[in-house]
């Protein structure tokens, strides 16, 4: 495949994200990376579950966690997952404008999630004195949820960079895999959040 075919393809293939060897490699490598990420988050979940009873005299999960905010966060992230599916739908239809639009909506929803999370942490720290250093529970909570939040920040930066970089030149076989794996990453963030809201928040207040 020549450079011309990759950068300005005459006709988009059915799955532009896997049309080049680089695309195939990225697709496979990124899925494997997510397999590693699964172990990483499992280790953090395990640590959290081992330490969520170690309050060190502080408030317990049941006394602190408010479900309405968590519900809003869940909805924001879940919807952003759907919008990035729409983006991938338009990627395969070679509709670059809509791809950019849905990716941008994904970013906005992600920012909303992040704002809620920052507010939540701020609320726990100022209202309950529940910090990273106050107990083993605190350390484990902020590390698990914070790692997820860090992934959100990285994902937002990544998708934004993609949107800005490619705004002027449209879709081609070089950047299609990049969009695709960024969207996989975003879905994975949502997958982890499903376990966080179940294990940390719902089981926390139970």
């Amino acid at each position: 495949m020549t450079e011309q075919d990759i950068m300005n393809p005459k006709k988009m293939p059915l799955q532009p994200e896997k049309a080049t060897l680089e695309g195939k490699n990225k697709f496979l490598g990124f899925w494997f990376f997510l397999g590693g990420e699964a172990v990483l988050f499992a280790s953090l979940f395990g640590t959290y579950l081992a330490l969520n009873g170690s309050l060190n005299g502080g408030k317990s999960a049941e006394e602190m966690f408010g479900l309405p905010l968590v519900f809003i966060m869940t909805m924001l992230l879940l919807t952003s997952s759907l919008t990035s599916v729409y983006a991938m739908h338009h990627l395969r239809n070679n509709d670059f404008k809509r791809l950019q639009l849905w990716m941008s909506i994904t970013v906005i929803l992600g920012l909303g999630f992040l704002a809620c999370e920052i507010y939540e942490f701020y609320h726990y720290i100022t209202d309950y004195g529940f910090t990273f250093r106050s107990s083993a529970f605190g350390s484990a909570f902020y590390t698990l949820v914070g790692f997820h939040g860090g992934h959100v920040v990285f994902g937002l930066a990544w998708i934004t960079a993609l949107i800005v970089r490619n705004a002027k030149r449209g879709l081609n076989l070089y950047n299609a895999p990049k969009y695709y794996i960024a969207s996989l990453y975003w879905h994975f963030i949502d997958v982890v959040w499903v376990f966080i809201f179940t294990v940390v928040y719902l089981m926390g207040v139970l």
């Binding site: 330490l51 170690s54 060190n56 990273f132 250093r133 107990s135 083993a136 605190g138 350390s139 484990a140």
Partner: peptide, 21 residues
């Protein structure tokens, strides 16, 4: 990471006095 947080940022993962294990 947990050890780094315990050593450099005073978290409590491995500190039994704070409920760590």
């Amino acid at each position: 990471f947990l050890m780094m947080f315990d050593r450099m940022f005073d978290s409590a993962f491995f500190d039994p006095a704070m409920g760590g294990n």
